[in-house]
């Protein structure tokens, strides 16, 4: 029995979440921990070298079709190796990459899969995953059926990452991947730098879908101006085209750690919360008292932001004199 950790890397760099996966894998106590690093020719060496402590074995799989961490090829390669080695658990991240390959791997293996898992437990009945549903409003306990292998992806940021260095020599596994998987990696693209860098701001005033109208942004702008803060937002505001993507706080946007974060009309979906939860002081205004945002906030105000925020702006201006 062993636990596999799929080392996630991009553009030649190991991604931090791999450390979290290793920590969970260790804690699971389900056998030795194997880190699997997949990639195109020459792409696995650097990530493998950066693996954290707590790994018993490192396997590198390289193949043309695995270039750019190609999800289709990753699933195909892992399926073949796993079918042979039968790891008890394949652990990945619930990341853009994990969402691409993990469930396909499970499908190929006919294995149970649990994604976006906050914590994974092992008991007599096998594995039990705890995850959230309804955008974090409820928590679900999901039992994975007893099977030779289960596939689990962990929510990034839910666990403390393992530190240190693996210092395990890497084995190389032959990749039994078809030369042509129907998908080809083309390139990495980075969002063009915008006018503002919200990661550098001390104070962020952030708006979410709770504002109903682009014009209502002015309410938030006024507060930001009074506070000398920068305006940021959650994903839906960008989806609607009301603010540019460079202002987006979230997993797919920017991770921020300001001194003060004021969340206006943001419900608190995990992909947002993950990227701002380490702010020094979080104050949230939302009309729904059950909004998940209040679970990461230090202070909360339940109310209509159009009533509260203008008052707040006024009070801030008065306080500043």
């Amino acid at each position: 029995m062993s636990v596999w950790v799929i080392a996630e890397h991009r553009n030649g760099e190991l991604r931090e979440v791999t450390g979290e996966l290793v920590a969970v894998a260790r804690a699971l106590g389900a056998g030795p921990v194997t880190a699997v690093v997949l990639g195109g020719p020459g792409e696995t060496e650097a990530p493998a070298a950066g693996l954290p402590a707590g790994i018993d074995r490192v396997v590198r799989v390289e193949h043309e079709s695995l270039a750019g961490f190609n999800g289709v090829a990753v699933a195909a390669a892992l399926e073949r190796v796993a079918a042979r080695e039968r790891p008890a658990v394949v652990l990945g991240a619930h990341s853009a990459a994990g969402m691409d390959w993990a469930s396909a791997l499970a499908a190929g293996l006919g294995a149970p899969v649990a994604t976006d898992v906050l914590s994974l437990h092992r008991d007599d009945g096998g594995f039990l995953a705890v995850r959230t549903v309804y955008a974090g409003k409820l928590q679900a306990r999901v039992r994975l059926a007893q099977a030779p292998t289960v596939v689990v992806t962990l929510r990034p940021g839910a666990t403390e990452a393992a530190a240190g260095s693996a210092e395990v020599p890497a084995e190389t596994e032959a990749a039994e991947v078809p030369a042509e998987v129907g998908r080809r990696f083309v390139e990495w693209i980075q969002e063009a730098a915008g006018e503002v860098d919200i990661t550098q701001a001390d104070v962020l005033v952030s708006v979410g879908r709770g504002i109903g109208d682009p014009e209502d942004l002015d309410v938030a702008r006024d507060l930001a101006e009074a506070l000398g803060a920068t305006l940021s937002c959650s994903r839906p505001v960008v989806d609607l085209g009301w603010l540019p993507k460079e202002r987006q706080v979230g997993i797919s946007g920017k991770t921020v750690k300001p001194k003060v974060y004021i969340a206006l009309g943001i419900s608190g979906a995990f992909q947002h919360v993950t990227a701002m939860k380490d702010a020094g002081l979080i104050l949230a205004v939302n009309k729904d008292p059950k909004a998940p945002i209040f679970r990461v906030s230090h202070y909360g105000i339940v109310g209509d932001l159009f009533k509260v925020v203008p008052e707040l702006t006024k009070a801030v201006r008065e306080a500043k004199g």
Binding site: N11, F185, W188, S252, K254
Partner: peptide
């Protein structure tokens, strides 16, 4: 494909 932290991956 939308990745994390302002990155995208172009695939065919």
């Amino acid at each position: 494909r939308e990745l994390e932290a302002g990155w995208f991956e172009r695939v065919e």
